[in-house]
Computed example of a mutant assay.
Amino acid sequence: MSQQQIFPWGDSRRFNSYSRYFKNLFGERVQKLTIDAGFTCPNRDGKVARGGCTFCLNDAFNPSYCSPEKSIRQQLEEGIEFHVKRYQKASRYLAYFQAYSNTYAPLERLKEIYSQALDLPEVVGIVVGTRPDCVDEEKLDFFAELSEKKYVTIEYGIESCYNDTLERVNRGHTYEQAVWAIEQTAKRHIKVGAHMMFGFPGETRARMLAQSEILSKLPLNTIKFHQLQIFKGTHMAKEYEQNPKQFRFFGLQEYIDFFVEFLEHLNPSFVVERFAGEVPPRYQAGPGWGLVRNEQLVSMLDKRLAELDTWQGRLFGASER
């Protein structure tokens, strides 16, 4: 197939990329600004469990300007200044509420927090990271109203489609709860995102790959993936130290090849925000890939897709034919 083949998402890139999606939507680059609004999580405060997910360490992903001690406006203004110096490309921004569960508060508190973010003229929308057990119909109705005026995505941490895995990592919710939350969000015409992780103990390659077809049936707009990384100070780090044979980590090229195969079966309408994670080595308690940046990973994926002359969704629905 020619490199200039136009794929279902409207360009010649071999997967439905997040950067193209926003350029088409807004006509220019849009940068996400991570915000820590001081939320907690029902998996930490005792409502569901204590201790959180065994793999969780939010500090590994929060940028330096991001702190709940600062106001929403201050974090946004510092984030804009940071990105102007670093990229000098974006003039419009999405406020990304990432840390913990950003719908885990009374509705009035949510209204206050999200109105602060949307008060800045440079902010064209919000991305709200949360758990599927932290939304209800009243909260979703509120986000539906916001989405009529601004860009809104609710991003749910699914992590795995298998309940035995979710229980093993102390996730505190089921896959069925994730399906309910996603369907209720999409029903209100709010954009829906999802987050998945590959490499949990006990999940074979075949089992991980099978999730591509499971997820493809959901009404998702965006999706992102991370390979399992073990962070210092987490419960999983203790498990790894005590029994390292339970864990099997992807090598870099192995992961690229795995993800290509996963991508071939993935719904081509899903916008792939990212397919791997990077964190500073100082946080890692297990083997990593060194100082490989996200831009390099994307370049490797593009190259491998071209070498194999394949693309996202090439085998989508093949098992049903």
Rank of each mutant, 00 (worst) to 15 (best):
M1A: 15
S2E: 14
S2P: 09
Q5D: 10
F7D: 00
F7W: 06
P8E: 15
S12C: 15
R13G: 11
R14M: 03
S17D: 01
N24Y: 05
L25A: 04
T34V: 15
I35Q: 01
G38T: 01
G38Y: 12
G38C: 01
G38E: 01
G38H: 05
T40I: 11
C41Y: 02
P42T: 09
P42Y: 05
R44Y: 02
G52V: 10
G52F: 06
C53W: 01
F55H: 10
F55T: 07
C56N: 02
L57W: 00
N58A: 08
D59W: 09
A60M: 06
F61E: 00
E69Y: 09
K70G: 03
S71K: 09
S71H: 07
E77T: 11
I80S: 04
I80C: 05
F82S: 14
K89T: 14
R92I: 10
R92V: 08
Q98I: 08
Y100F: 15
S101N: 06
S101D: 02
L110T: 04
E112G: 10
L118W: 12
P121V: 03
P121H: 10
E122P: 01
V123N: 03
V124A: 01
R131A: 04
V135A: 00
E137T: 04
K139Q: 11
L140G: 01
F143A: 01
F143N: 00
A144N: 08
K149T: 13
K150M: 08
V152W: 07
V152G: 01
T153W: 07
S160P: 08
C161H: 03
Y162L: 11
N163S: 14
D164S: 15
D164L: 10
L166Y: 04
E167I: 07
N170M: 11
N170C: 15
R171H: 11
H173W: 03
T174R: 09
A178S: 14
W180C: 00
A181L: 00
I182K: 01
E183H: 10
E183Y: 11
E183I: 10
Q184R: 09
I190N: 02
K191E: 05
K191N: 15
V192W: 00
A194F: 02
F198N: 12
A206M: 06
L209Y: 08
L209S: 06
Q211E: 15
E213C: 10
I214W: 02
S216D: 04
S216L: 04
N221D: 15
T222Q: 06
T222R: 03
T222I: 05
H226W: 10
Q229M: 14
I230Q: 02
K232M: 05
K232L: 09
G233C: 04
T234R: 01
H235E: 11
E239I: 06
Q242Y: 02
N243F: 05
Q246F: 08
L252A: 12
Q253L: 08
I256P: 09
V260P: 06
E261K: 13
L263S: 11
L266A: 04
N267I: 09
E273N: 13
R274G: 00
F275V: 06
G290M: 12
V292G: 11
N294V: 07
E295C: 13
L297T: 06
V298F: 14
S299P: 01
M300Y: 10
D302M: 12
L305A: 04
L305H: 08
A306N: 14
A306K: 12
G313Q: 04
G313A: 03
L315N: 12
G317Y: 13
S319T: 13
S319K: 15
R321I: 13
